[in-house]
Write a protein that binds this DNA or RNA. Structure first.
Lengths: 171, 171
DNA sequence: ATGTATGCAAACCATTTGCAATGAC
DNA sequence: GTCATTGCAAATGGTTTGCATACAT
């Protein structure tokens, strides 16, 4: 027989995020289902960004079985509970991450990989910044460019093109 | 008979963006079609953000007739030619805007409206900023929060709820 | 004349929705 | 027992693709 993991073995009820979610569910008169805690607990094991699909696979791979709709549903609740944030980068599916210290996202337009980097100076700047007739809640800084790996690849490709052109001219 | 506008009457060939696009098409051996110039010329009349659908309607309303695919296609080229930039904000369809001076996007999470605001200090900060192993090309700062209109609405709604609660208690 | 660009309709695919069955309270 | 939640399957909607026709070069 297949052993379905016991949620008790997974959830760390002393974890502040688990607490926050629990409180959130209480406040909104919502039910505490195994699926919701299983999803949250797996999110807590992720560092950085993840997609809905990746999250579902992670949960499934631990012997739980959650439907796509439940993942979407729970992630929505976690955003409302200020535990998660969604990012929509150029030409990729939505990615999520736990709300932590503010940081910048460096997005490589060549390979699509996203690097996160802390920037205390920028955070301080934004902290002090106020806008007219607009009450800021949070912000996202996306920097688009080329990562070092892709920069190297592009350089190499360019060099071989140049060589090829020289060869063509010689013929 | 329907008068199809003459593209010559629409395109300002002295416009630097028109020039740039023209050069871009030349460099890439692409054709200079009426549709492409009609779309660009209408984009030049737009201030701020627009959607594919809005753009198509604008072009159509001037008596041109362009297909959805052509709008997508042309907008893609204009991005490649460094004339347009695409933004994907939380839970909305993609929006485009001409590349101009750097500015911040203030996004109201209540009504979805996006305000643009210049921030020379921030631009200067970013101008000087360098990242490890990452060659920055451009950046987007999205500030999420509540616009003044929605703030007022929310306040009013809250007040009436409070009043209602008081009434309920009195009963 | 050649082959790129257009326009239409169909395909795509992440996300959302409807609804019967399940399970938290 | 009640009703929110789950899971499935179908719907949605912005975007992309395939292909015959039109037209820039």
């Amino acid at each position: 027989m297949t052993t379905v993991p016991n949620i008790e073995d997974f959830v760390d009820s002393t974890n502040p995020f688990v607490r926050r979610f629990s409180d959130y569910l209480d406040e909104h008169g919502m039910r505490k289902t195994t699926e919701r805690y299983a999803i949250l607990q797996h999110i807590l094991n992720i560092n950085g960004l993840f997609t809905i699909e990746g999250l579902q696979q992670l949960v499934d791979s631990d012997g739980f079985r959650v439907s796509r709709s439940t993942v979407y549903n729970t992630v929505e609740l976690l955003m409302d509970a200020q535990i998660l944030r969604r990012h929509v980068f150029e030409g990729m599916q939505a990615q999520y991450e736990r709300i932590t210290l503010p940081h910048t996202h460096l997005i490589c337009t060549s390979c699509g990989r996203v690097k996160e980097t802390r920037d205390p100076n920028f955070a301080a700047f934004m902290n002090a910044r106020r806008y007219n007739a607009f009450n800021a809640d949070h912000y996202s800084l996306y920097v688009y460019g080329t990562c070092s790996t892709c920069a190297r690849k592009l350089k190499r490709a360019k060099q071989s093109t140049t060589k090829k052109n020289k060869r063509d001219k010689q013929l």
